[in-house]
Design a binder for these strands. Structure first.
Lengths: 199, 199
DNA sequence: GTCTATACGCCGATAGAC
DNA sequence: GTCTATCGGCGTATAGAC
């Protein structure tokens, strides 16, 4: 019984190490420039076929990564919505999270903001169709109803707000902006919010 | 003599057809999902080795495309700067151009805004290092001096302005915004300009 | 799970006859 | 420039012995 638990723990450890190594490599070199042998070396795995005991194929590794990242983003958005009432506070919470992730988990943010996921996961829905982003649209719509946000096409509003946020984080991730994300947080938040707020 | 001209025209026709087909395929499927046989079929070419009479290899096709697009962007920016005095008018000219290109030459804009060029052209400078973008930064700095634009880090200012512009055009290109770019031009320009303008 | 070996396919790139 | 044929290599994926 204990042995079985140990075995499962070991199994999920390897599982996670593969995902972690793949995330790092995909973020740094891109999906197509990363070979399975790269992943095997980066994780602590001895042979290539171990990989196939945990994942059906290379695409599935990327797919699981994708699911994990978007699921946890979705959970975070739920949490932020529960904790805050006003749309401005909810959006601020999401922005805080994204800036923090950029500094503390840059590979995750590169996966989110930079990788062209549909090139290697053609069957996945576009980012805007994921649960987390549908909720963000809802936050925006609620903000319009409450008179906090200018009335306009919600998708366009999303584009203005996160255009500023995402582009700035992309420049941080690529090194074009040389400080860490946190250094740009307050100014960028203000600009993004003013771009959609009712005067 | 005439024959030689004809020959060169024919040669450059094939040359251009290859580039056009490659641009389309790269924009639609990505660089790595596009094989040379795909390009050969899409252009009007009968055999694979003709391709190598015009380009050293696959990477060079992408490289020439990259150069062409950024060169012509650079020329356009020069032209816009010559025609307009105020920074706001110059930026407006650039935005007009980008929206028009999105509707009329979507593949070019996908190459510019969506493709991760450094994945297949690792030796190329980042977008921000190209001549056209250096000039855009200069426009922004001039606008700050003239009191048109809020004083801040020029790269950050660039990020705010083109964050809104680029993200909106990306959503148009991906179909997430269902009208053509022109339908969003005036509202998006206003929002982007207000994000950086001095009140 | 480890290690070695290998099958298989695709793609980039080349060669040679016409 | 066309057409056919092919090489080499890499990367994915599998098989089998331990």
């Amino acid at each position: 019984m204990d042995q079985e638990i140990e075995k499962n723990q070991a199994k999920s450890e390897i599982h996670d190490e593969i995902l972690l190594a793949a995330l790092k490599l995909f973020a740094e070199k891109g999906y197509f420039n990363t070979s399975l042998t790269d992943i095997v070396e980066a994780a602590d795995i001895k042979a290539t076929n171990v990989l196939y005991q945990h994942f059906k194929n290379k695409q599935m590794i990327a797919s699981v990564l994708y699911e994990n990242i978007f699921d946890s983003l979705n959970v975070s958005v739920d949490d932020i919505r529960r904790r805050n009432q006003k749309s401005s506070d909810q959006l601020r919470g999401i922005v805080d999270l994204m800036f923090r992730l950029t500094d503390e988990a840059s590979h995750v943010m590169q996966f989110l903001l930079i990788l062209k996921v549909d090139e290697f996961l053609p069957e996945h829905k576009p980012t805007l169709g994921t649960a987390a982003f549908i909720k963000i649209i809802k936050i925006i719509q609620a903000g319009m109803k409450a008179g906090e946000i200018r009335t306009m096409d919600p998708t366009l509003c999303y584009s203005y707000f996160f255009g500023i946020i995402n582009h700035t984080l992309q420049l941080v991730l690529s090194g074009s902006l040389d400080k860490n994300a946190d250094a740009y947080l307050s100014a960028t938040w203000l600009t993004a919010w003013n771009a959609i707020a009712k005067k």
